[in-house]
Nucleic acid binder design. Sequence first.
DNA 1: CTAGGGTTAG
Length: 609
Amino acid sequence: MRIFKIMRSAGLQPDQFAYANVILACTAMEKFNLGNLFLSLVMKVGFLTSGYVLSGLIDLFAKGGCFVKALDIFLYGYSDNVVCWNAVIAGAVRNGESWIALKLFHQMVESLCMPNGFTFSSLLGACAAVGELDVGRTIHAWIVKFNQQDDIFVGTAAIDLYAKCGDMDAAVKMFLSMPAKNVVSWTALISGFVLEEDGDSTLKYFIEMLRNNIYINVYTITSVLFACAKCCMANISYQIHGLILKSALYTDPAVNAALINLYGRIGNVQMSEKVFKEGGMEMHLSNWSAMISSLVQNQYFSRALELFLQMLCEDLKPDKSCISSILSIVDCIIFGEQLHSYIVKVGLVDDLLVCSSLFTMYSKCGSIGDSYELFGQMPDKDRVAWTSMISGFARHGNAKEAFQLFREMILEGIKPDDMALSAALTACNSQIFLDKGKEIHGFSFRHGLSIDTVIGSSTISMYSKCKDIESARRVFAYIQCKDQILWSSLISAYSTNNKSEEAILDFHRMTTTGLEIDHVTCSSVLVACAQLFRPILGTQIHGQAIKAGLILHNSVASSLLTLYAKCGIISECRKLFDGIQNPDLTTWTTMIEGYARHGRAKEALKHLI
DNA sequence: CTAGGGTTAG
């Protein structure tokens, strides 16, 4: 740049190469604001016909985010130079104009300019960006026609396209056919398996990579760690962590964040904290947000809040994922409102993620009106936002509003998934909604979503709340893979519908399949025991609950209290109650009721006061 | 003039 200035001030006329090189330097230094200056200089001396200068200017404007200007210059200086075509096509892809890129390609071929590896690499990127597998296959055919299939960039871009579109067979085929591969080709393939949540294949290729002594970099490691997190591969995770410690990768903030996230997913918060502390926590925002979400996922709410407040004290600006994580654990409207003001202040209200978490917070804290108002103000709503609002209404017993929203969501063209259906089913909370529930059940059946246990258990609960226990049983029988959640839905369906014999029978059936009992199953079956006056069975289950650590759940404790109170074993009640660490409203009420039922008014009143 | 990742909310 300086030499260029000296040249001009000395009255020397720079030639096309001097201009091209100085423009190249501008791009490299990201001095995009100099684009217009050079454009006018170049126009004055008539160098826009030079392919070197033209391609440089196109690239400068495209990288500076002015694709329209880049396209203008290209069309004005119209050249049959392949580099100019490539620059404008790549610029289109970079600026999210994939379809323009593809159109330009066709014009290029029509004007008989031969595309090369650069062209195809960008075009495949364009297809990947818009998820156009079919167009991508057409481009692949062009690649073969122009004999560019051995280019390492083209091959890698093809792997990336197939991988992003979920066609892993094609990706592997491309990978194997490549005469030369590098770390990027390997990583593109591995990322495809990560997207598919195929942990086995991810590891298989990663190990193969290590065996072949391919240099592993940050991209590879973060992909593999992500796969470990997604597939909950705990043992392998520790080994890979060891590998990272031995390499220079441990100091990279992206790797740190990936490790923190991984340990959060596999439930080892202590390790998350360790990586967080070792990774220079004062520097990187991504580490803070990974750490907070790890804590939230594992229910360390107060520690999460502590870190959040620490961030504010240290003048670190929490990003949207931090704020969303924190919002998801807020259970007090005053704190929620404070966060709301903060979000408005930092200008994050219009963010889809933040706003979704915000209106969900209002609905969880009891302000369904505020929640719906915020929801209504959102310009774009995704499936999660719709689902969250539906379940907000369902939770507040506003069934009609929930159904209306479910309808609107489908009319908006958003396909409900298992969570959305489950939210709509939850709204059917009494017999009068049985028809509506059947309608939604039919919808999920028609859309092939009925095999899922999430939908399965919500469908069973729906029929249970609508007092159609026969249908609940039929849904249960239909589902092949029965997990604890499904069994517990059925058992609680019987127990809440006064079919206690059936509930106990199914409890025995469940335990014989080798499934562990959980707190929901346990408390349902105890309710059944109470109804049938079966203290002996109840005591047995009490023992199992202690062994499985379920006694810490207040729902289990209060079911046991009900059982002992009903069967007149008040001394056992008292012993149990005194052992409860955090008695809640239900456990207190049950205890008081127990005393009252047995004419122990004095004790009942003592508890009350 | 060209390539690979970071996922959070219901």
